[in-house]
Design a protein around this nucleic acid. Structure first.
Lengths: 110, 110
DNA sequence: ACTATTAATCGTAATATTGCAATATACAAA
DNA sequence: TTTGTATATTGCAATATTACGATTAATAGT
């Protein structure tokens, strides 16, 4: 079917999955790393930076924007993107609650 | 095409994407949370715990096992799964290097 | 107005993912 | 050896994702 049965999972589980899915493609990872590295609005050089066609990058940016992880601003003929730091923090807290789970017993039962 | 051009990205970017992809489905999140909660080998109750059919759960388990995040042991007629804590730590370090990036300038240029 | 530049959208092809019914496999108990 | 129980595999249908060429939209400069 190709569509996840989100209704049988908690909001938290679905949120973890949504953010993780966004990071589930190396192009989106690369885009976000580039935005962090430049540490300012990035206008236009994403296509040349990542090695994918312009419509493909645009599509990946759209997904990240939809999730709220990045913000875009029209600046003349180009569009400037940057990290939405508030949303990034929010995402980090949600993901960390999942990643930082601990095994009280030092496991290794298998 | 539906297939990511992994060859144009770094190993680190691809690793981040692979682990994130694994967490990109709420069923796999739920499975991992359950394994952490029980804190021991889980034999068999995953199908009743999560609300999906047995072949579907089996498939999700297979993916997590392939990545090394869980270990499975045959125990009589059933199979016991638990978190592979070493791999989990390794994954956490890789993901944290991505999640904990900082903007030196407090951004908000957009 | 015309042209160039940049980014979004549309359309489409190739492939991946999700989910499950049916079946197979593996083992334990009777 | 048969029967039951638990899990894996196969096959398939529905949908999603990835990628890009072609086109459109929007603006800047001439």
């Amino acid at each position: 079917m190709g569509l996840a049965k989100t209704e049988i999972f908690s909001d938290q589980q679905n949120a973890i999955a949504s953010f993780s899915k966004a990071f589930g493609h190396p192009a989106r990872v690369a885009i976000l790393q580039h935005l962090f590295k430049l540490d300012t609005c990035v206008c236009g050089d994403l296509v040349s930076e990542i090695g994918l066609a312009q419509p493909t990058i645009s599509q990946h940016l759209k997904e990240l924007k939809l999730l709220g992880l990045i913000k875009g601003n029209v600046e003349g003929t180009s569009v400037c993107y940057c990290i939405n730091i508030e949303k990034w923090q929010e995402m980090k807290e949600i993901l960390n609650s999942f990643l930082n789970q601990d095994l009280t017993s030092q496991g290794d039962c298998c």
